[in-house]
Design a protein around this nucleic acid. Sequence first.
DNA 1: GAAGATTGATGAATCAATCTTT
DNA 2: AAAGATTGATTCATCAATCTTC
Lengths: 171, 171
Amino acid sequence: VTDPLSFDPIREASAQWEQRWGSEPVSSMRAVTSIMRAQQILLARLNELLKPHGLTFPRYEALMILYFSRRGSLPLGKLGARLQVHPTSVTSLVDGLERSGLVRREPHSSDRRATLASITDDGREVAKAATKALNEEKFGTEPLSADDLDAVTKILATLRVDAGDFVLEAG
Amino acid sequence: VTDPLSFDPIREASAQWEQRWGSEPVSSMRAVTSIMRAQQILLARLNELLKPHGLTFPRYEALMILYFSRRGSLPLGKLGARLQVHPTSVTSLVDGLERSGLVRREPHSSDRRATLASITDDGREVAKAATKALNEEKFGTEPLSADDLDAVTKILATLRVDAGDFVLEAG
DNA sequence: GAAGATTGATGAATCAATCTTT
DNA sequence: AAAGATTGATTCATCAATCTTC
């Protein structure tokens, strides 16, 4: 998007930080900035890979949860809990998937407040094709090794537990 | 935002992935999902910490680049290169900082196409106070250790180089 | 009153198109 | 033509307020 800088901006910031505020908070600042930037890079790569399939990554994630669900459908609230996003975001994601014909809204059989998001046959086909594309490109994580990726996953799991995403299971 | 799940959704997805598509792409899928979620958690924490100072984290990042700049001002293009965001995003960030009185737009002395973003005295005060708050709370990275944070930073640097953020310097 | 979902607002990211200046 | 910045459009995230149903 722009020319590469001749230095690492995060490394540069670390030096100035340490000079002014001591060494204690530097690791935190560096890691946060790195994660923010990595997310931005990965999201751009994923959206690029998904564009031929008419999907964005957030919509892909929602579609896959429905794909893997027992009945191929889930109440919007449950979908939001799995995605860890606001009810408003679920509405917007399902709107988009519905416009593309990959998901249908259906009434809940027993609770008339609730709405089900149900994956369509088209949705299943697109889910499979898009997943093939992402798997072949390793979800845009090149050039990181499997060991490095697993290390990141393990470390960030601690943060996710602390944020209340889920409770630790036995084993 | 919702109740904690009784299982780790990423762990759950890994199992289904491996069953269907083999073990090869699982590490990538897991790491990408983890990074996306970690970014979301950290951003929420940072915005909460910055709210008393009338800042969001993206605006804070922009403000600090100006704070550390030699003259306290930078052309919008240079600011965008440092933040690694689109020109449109720079315009929007500077708009917000200008509305808060933390930054002023000034004409470039030699190039009438360019605009400078210049940090104000208020901006410097807010930058210091906000940084104090973030440092004290370790940028919302609790309960991760400094070693874990450094490990994440190091691994993700490889990705940032690959994405062309910067070129490796000697040493 | 509380739960499930939606609408309307803001903030931040992108892209395409435009406008001025070089 | 190319560079710097802006406006207008879309997507996704949040919050506050609303509406229906439990």
